[in-house]
Write a protein that binds this DNA or RNA. Structure first.
Lengths: 158, 158
DNA sequence: TATTGTTATACTCTATAACTATA
DNA sequence: TATAGTTATAGAGTATAACAATA
């Protein structure tokens, strides 16, 4: 059975037979799976009126249990400070988070989930986890473990 | 050995022990590998003054061997017609491609690589393939085949 | 002087829809 | 009427740098 990448590799093979496409077969497939999965994830999040990065901020706060500074957040989520400020502000205005002034350092603040924010992220998280399970339906349990292991190996080799 | 996702899963486990994180371990790792790999790919392409989508257009034309219409291009590359028009125009102005008027349908045209465009994409492609091979250094040959197979299975189950 | 966080600015990229020409 | 491709517009999102307050 052929997937979309098989067709691309076949075209390359006909055009440039000397080209070694083995790496392209892996990288191309991973990028394509990423596109498909991201669409499915965003579909669930949009349903709850959250962007991917907004979800990431709320989820990061939730699983850390303690409030984080804007600096910690933009470093964790690989965003500029300015972009993080904007995101924080819109989440504050929607009642999901609040800024708590620091007592030790008066330049700084902690970003904290509101009770409403906790409720919202818990609901979205539930839908998100179910959604991800569905995305993996094509693999059995053993294959899922295998895939996780291979991806982990790639991450650790970076 | 722990990767970044292990830490996230551990935090979730402490915060919400009832949450089944097995799917998150796979999806999270794939999204993270995608971020890392895309950065590396874009580093090589930027070096040659090409964006990812510009590279994709040139590569699509190269491996198809025959010129394609703008419509075929934006459908293949999942872009709007307007966005594709803009991309085509900048590539024309840089001498990589040209529009050839269709004889059969005077509304239409074919987008064709110039000799300079072919030379450019061939050089970039070479660097790109080498780059991708390097990205897979952490896996041996058997593991690479395994990963390709698992990703293919995911794509075919969508 | 350096750092925290915000604000102002400008830039890139896109989708949408209006538009032209042709089928 | 429908379609191919372009153009005009507006929106989302970002990084950068200037900025104010504090260390």
């Amino acid at each position: 059975m052929n997937d979309p990448i098989d067709n691309i590799l076949q075209q390359w093979n006909q055009t440039k037979p000397e080209l070694d496409c083995s790496a392209m077969g892996i990288v191309g497939r991973l990028l394509l799976v990423n596109i498909n999965w991201k669409k499915k994830i965003e579909h669930v999040l949009t349903d709850k009126e959250l962007s991917f990065i907004e979800f990431d901020i709320l989820a990061t706060l939730r699983r850390n249990q303690i409030p984080l500074t804007p600096t910690e957040l933009y470093q964790t989520l690989m965003l500029s400070s300015g972009a993080m400020s904007t995101r924080i502000e819109t989440l504050v205005q929607r009642g999901f988070i609040e800024r708590v002034a620091s007592e030790k350092d008066r330049r700084s603040c902690k970003v904290k989930l509101t009770p409403q924010g906790i409720k919202a992220i818990d609901i979205v998280l539930d839908a998100h986890v179910k959604n991800m399970s569905g995305m993996l339906n094509g693999l059995d349990g053993g294959e899922q473990k295998q895939l996780a292991g291979l991806l982990k190996k790639v991450l650790l080799s970076d």
